[in-house]
Design a protein around this nucleic acid. Structure first.
Length: 523
RNA sequence: GGCGCUGUCGCCAAGUGGCUAAGGCAGCGGAUUGCAAAUCCGCCACCGUGGGUUCGACUCCCACCAGCGCCUCCA
């Protein structure tokens, strides 16, 4: 796996044998989550599943930052208490995770529920000389940390800023707040330094330390958090405990909003070479349109996206590329991915028609070593074994879900080909031995998909399900199909095609098979 | 300006110092079908540009070009 700290891939060697502790930076709950917030959770949900499959016992923590300047601002804007805003957005976040099938997170610590730990942590840093109080604020003294900058690869000299609003009280502009004194009317907690609230980074250090220990295995987050958030976490935690915070740092690429402004940005940059200063603002504006989702004003709430796409579609979309790579977000792209996904869903339906069994509840190996696949005499089993191997190799190489999914596609095609070649579909065909081969292949598919949290249950696509489950609709469709079958029998194809065409226009697709006609609702 | 990432088929996207550079979407041809749909088969890439290292590079190094991120509170 790739480690931001060393900038190389390293083998996973856990602190405790067989156990992995993961801390992922969660959201600051001041606004509804957008798709960018789902990237980390989806990736780490898959990583946890995979590591569990490989044989580790994984503890995964995602924090909820529910006290923050932005939250205070949002609360006053909406005339609510900070707590009410936080609760509303936390609920939104949980709904989104649920829709995504992310149910492997073990702990969701909240900053406001860990004030004692945060204050204690801050006090320790003061006691050890790494932090200082100034008029009710407490700052981390960056100058005291020799290793500061090791994660993000920055030198202190290179970082000069004006120090924000608290410049006057800081020893150095690079110092950051551990504790902020409260202004009148702001939510606050009692502390040795007066009423106040925690700074941005401290809650992660305090809660990670409490749940996972002073040192743990993997710390994750978006690439944009490397600096300053993670750098500061490292600084305060390692100065406080005198030992490494996390052994591995994993950072996911950011979701980008696509826009036609890419060219505009390029042009203004070229202009900037001539008149350096003047074009900066221009460039920034272009970046807002084409840049990452987090800064894009048009970032739709994730819950809106879920009205259009199934959670699994989004998951598949994100998993289809490598986690460290930035992804451009556009609905066309998700549409494409969804079409590919349909290939799997159709196979699962076909599987049921052929074997009479449900793919989703198919028994499969839960652990890697249990699944070692010994091919039988059929050539197809050789191929299944190879795909399993390739899939696992891809996942072993820095969780390459994109490559792994490619193998899944090859696996479906293999299985489809087998059904075709052996003519397993159709009335009266039930060669038990061949069916057993199919089942073994499908169970490998089941096993592999489980490792990344895919195809866990049948998906209802938004927009395509309207009425489909309705009993009356079912009866009507049955009637249509019978009438049409009659027409076909009498070679009255004009009528038959007319029915099919008419239904297609209202989004119902008929498929004629040797053993009958099936129907489904398209989006 | 500093630190870093990326550039592979029309679009998306794996991957490798040397045998056929995955896969998906789109497209084209075929099998199948009364016609479709679905499925299967086949076709569709001189790996940003220019140097260098090497017996050999798309893969390593350098330069350049293009796009992108971070540089104090965005996952």
């Amino acid at each position: 796996m790739y480690n931001t700290l060393s900038k190389t891939k390293e083998p996973l060697e856990t602190l405790q044998p067989g156990k992995v502790g993961i801390y992922l930076c969660g959201p600051t709950v001041y606004k509804p989550s957008h798709i960018g917030h789902m990237v980390g959770p989806i990736i780490f949900d898959s990583i946890k599943r995979y590591l569990t499959y490989v044989g580790y016992q994984v503890t995964w923590v995602v924090n909820i930052t529910d006290v923050d300047d932005k939250l205070i601002a949002e609360a006053s804007k909406r005339g609510m208490t900070m707590q009410a805003v936080a609760e509303e957005m936390t609920a939104d976040y949980h709904r989104n995770l649920g829709a995504m099938g992310i149910d492997t997170i073990d702990h969701f610590p909240k900053a406001t529920e860990h004030m004692a730990e945060i204050i204690d942590f801050t006090q320790k840093l003061i006691d050890r000389g790494f932090a200082y109080e100034a008029e009710g604020d407490v700052f981390f003294d960056v100058g005291r940390d020799r290793e500061y900058g090791k994660l993000s690869g920055r030198s202190l000299e290179a970082m000069q800023g004006e120090g924000g609003g608290a410049a006057g009280r800081k020893k150095s502009s690079t110092d950051f707040a551990l504790w902020k004194g409260a202004k009148p009317g702001e939510p606050s907690w009692k502390s040795p330094w007066g009423e106040g609230r925690p700074g941005w980074h401290i809650e992660c250090s305090a809660m990670a330390g409490k749940i996972l220990g002073e040192s743990f295995d993997i710390h994750g987050g978006g690439l944009d958090l490397v600096f300053p958030h993670h750098e500061n976490e490292v600084a305060q935690s390692e100065c406080c405990h005198g030992k490494p915070l996390a052994k591995y740092w994993m950072h996911n690429g950011l979701m980008q909003a696509t826009g036609e402004s890419g060219k505009v940005g390029g042009r203004s940059r070229q202009a900037g070479e001539v008149g350096a200063a003047s074009s900066v603002a221009e460039g920034d504006q272009a970046a807002q349109e084409a840049g990452k989702i987090g800064k894009s004003k048009g970032a739709a709430a994730f819950s809106e996206l879920l009205k259009k796409y199934a959670g699994e579609t989004i998951r598949f979309f994100l998993l289809s590329t490598h986690y460290r790579r930035p992804i451009d977000f556009s609905e066309e792209r998700i549409d494409d991915v969804e079409k590919g996904l349909d290939q799997f869903y159709r196979f699962f339906e076909r599987y049921k028609r052929v074997t009479g069994e449900d793919f989703y509840t198919l028994a499969a190996a839960a652990k890697r070593e249990q699944g070692e696949f010994t091919p039988g005499v059929d050539a197809i089993e050789q191929a299944v074994a190879e795909h399993r191997k390739k899939f696992l190799e891809a996942m072993d190489d820095d969780f390459n879900t994109g490559g792994a999914i490619g193998d899944l596609f090859e696996l479906v095609r293999l299985l489809n080909r087998f059904v075709d070649a052996e003519k397993l579909e159709g009335a009266g065909k039930s060669d038990a031995a061949k069916l057993a081969v199919l089942k073994r292949g499908a169970s490998v598919m089941r096993e592999l998909a489980n490792t990344v949290g895919l195809f866990r249950s049948p998906v209802q696509k938004p927009g395509s399900s309207a009425g489909a489950g309705d009993e009356l609709v079912g009866k009507l469709m049955k009637l249509f199909i019978e009438v049409r079958a009659d027409a076909r029998k009498n070679k009255n194809f004009a009528t038959a095609d007319g029915i099919r065409k008419g239904l297609a226009e209202i989004g119902v697709v008929l498929e004629d098979r040797p053993d009958g006609t099936s129907w489904s609702v398209q989006k």
